[in-house]
């Protein structure tokens, strides 16, 4: 959000004139955004609509008499699911960064033999459909007897983020000047020490980007949850919503309230870390 406000306050002189000339574009932009975000408005609207008004025709376009029953139901029934998703999301972030960051450092700065091949494999890995990876994991977990364990789900979820993480970290770390590392070496730091106390702190921005996506993907994951963790004690919020739809087919007020609550992390992350999100979407796809 801060980046948006600074950009707005930094408008160049003469922009007042420009602002007057472009107000119709702003208006058009607002209309487009309203259309695009309509489903989200509708989700919030339905989450506040009382059950007896749910099937009225035409549907009520604005919750004039809002009810919070849906949200009370969420707190009473879905809190454990939200907790599980939070733990799994954080676990995935940790695993992803621990595995991806050292490899990226090596790829970017230590010139390992076969590094190019590894980068290639990582790119290809991102193209493998999740449903298929899930099937492989299912077969393995069944053999090992670790189906329905949160740890198993964290490992599976991290497969979404590790290749992406290595690519983002590598792109960033290649930009760190070699002089910085030679300086550390002259001061007597080994490669490990250089990595931990020079490279990692400098790479803070990319750590935020990777963590953010790792968390969001783990939080949003449905395929792995529904295949690898559908029978355990600790279930995720995506499965919570899915079960909700299955069991309370008619109770859309509560379903949408759960959906709103499940959207909160994405919304918060977008507001506080918008520039990191945009960086993650473009990095890897387009090289400047």
């Amino acid at each position: 959000m801060s980046s948006i406000t600074t950009r707005l306050s930094n408008v160049a002189p003469g922009s007042r004139r420009r602002g007057r000339r472009t107000w119709h574009k702003t208006l058009l932009g607002l209309v487009f955004t309203a259309i695009m975000l309509f489903p989200i408005y509708w989700m919030v609207n339905v989450s506040l609509t009382p059950a007896d008004r749910m099937r009225s025709s035409p549907p009520s376009w604005f919750p004039f008499a809002p009810t919070f029953d849906g949200y009370i139901a969420v707190i009473q029934q879905q809190l454990p699911y939200l907790g599980t998703s939070l733990v799994i999301g954080l676990g995935t972030v940790l695993l992803t960064v621990v595995v991806a960051a050292p490899a990226a450092y090596s790829l970017a700065k230590l010139r390992p033999k076969g590094g190019g091949a590894l980068s290639f494999v990582l790119l290809v890995a991102q193209m493998i459909p999740q449903v298929i990876v899930a099937m492989g994991f299912y077969a393995i977990y069944l053999n090992l007897g670790i189906l329905n364990q949160p740890a198993g789900l964290i490992i599976a979820d991290s497969t979404l983020a590790v290749p992406f993480g290595v690519l983002i970290f590598t792109a960033f770390m290649s930009g760190i000047p070699d002089e910085l590392m030679s300086a550390a070496k002259l001061d007597g730091a080994g490669t490990m020490r250089t990595f931990l106390s020079v490279v990692l702190p400098v790479s803070r921005n990319s750590i935020v980007t990777v963590s953010l996506f790792a968390f969001l993907w783990a939080w949003s994951d449905f395929v792995f949850s529904s295949t690898l963790n559908s029978g355990g004690d600790a279930q995720t919020i995506t499965l919570g919503i899915y079960r909700y739809i299955g069991n309370n087919n008619q109770d859309w007020n509560s379903i949408m309230a759960t959906a709103v609550v499940a959207s909160i992390p994405a919304t918060i992350l977008l507001i506080v870390a918008q520039r990191y999100v945009a960086a993650g979407v473009t990095a890897g796809a387009v090289k400047d």
Partner: peptide, 15 residues
């Protein structure tokens, strides 16, 4: 405009 892309798919799909 980024919001729809960041929401969990189950949220978008059920909406």
């Amino acid at each position: 405009f980024l919001v729809p892309w960041l929401l969990p798919l189950i949220v978008s799909a059920s909406t």
